[in-house]
Nucleic acid binder design. Sequence first.
DNA 1: TAGTTATATACCTATACGGTTATATTTAGA
DNA 2: TCTAAATATAACCGTATAGGTATATAACTA
Lengths: 124, 124
Amino acid sequence: MPIVDQLDVTFAALADPTRRAILARLAEGEASVMELAAPFEISQPAISKHLRVLELAGLVSRGRDGQRRPCRIEAEPLAAASAWIENYRRIWEATYARLDDLLEMMKREQRNARPARRARRKRK
Amino acid sequence: MPIVDQLDVTFAALADPTRRAILARLAEGEASVMELAAPFEISQPAISKHLRVLELAGLVSRGRDGQRRPCRIEAEPLAAASAWIENYRRIWEATYARLDDLLEMMKREQRNARPARRARRKRK
DNA sequence: TAGTTATATACCTATACGGTTATATTTAGA
DNA sequence: TCTAAATATAACCGTATAGGTATATAACTA
């Protein structure tokens, strides 16, 4: 009984470079399977499989235009995935921001502690 | 020759619910392996494996505290993943925003086109 | 109707993944 | 130094995944 979360399939779909490239292409507008397959060296059935993964993840939807099945990107799962990441990233940042600030401050202080260094170098 | 992108491993790491739960826990602060394993029913080696995946993806780093290896979240790959998604999501929105606006406008016009309808209906 | 194009499906293979149990390693503490 | 605790590693199993080729389906076109 695989309890498959929506995020599971979304992230899994995004984990493949071919599929990310397909999404990148689709961000520019609709495209047919052949058009999507063109830039890749892999076979057409392989592209069809990738598209099915993206479709099952809800990341693309497909229409019908004669014998073509134009694909378009669907942003909603992307929004959910992004929201998940940003949520935890924000918590993390809230937790560690002060430490980061401290380190940044220390770096800055180190730089400012020897202001003559670069000027002297130019003299050489 | 697997050309493994950083995004590949990041998204792949995020695709597992156990690993996302671990990250969620780590967002609250550092934790040892045993602490992380506690809420799950799976074995300790399984947790260790998940941690290794997260570590290889750069999503967690580990310290040493006696016999414990406390884990902490690392936000940078999260930022990269989030940035990737948001980038294409934004392009998508820019492309289809006008269409969405149009549809929204049409809906609104439809509502406004028959303002007497509801009133008339009441008469019945 | 026959041929061609676009896409999907079937079947096969190799590898990766998530889980297990058993065992090794490392460190703390009596 | 011996034992116990925390963690990692090894070996194994079943299933999923990405890829291939061959073939089927469906819709245009001559």
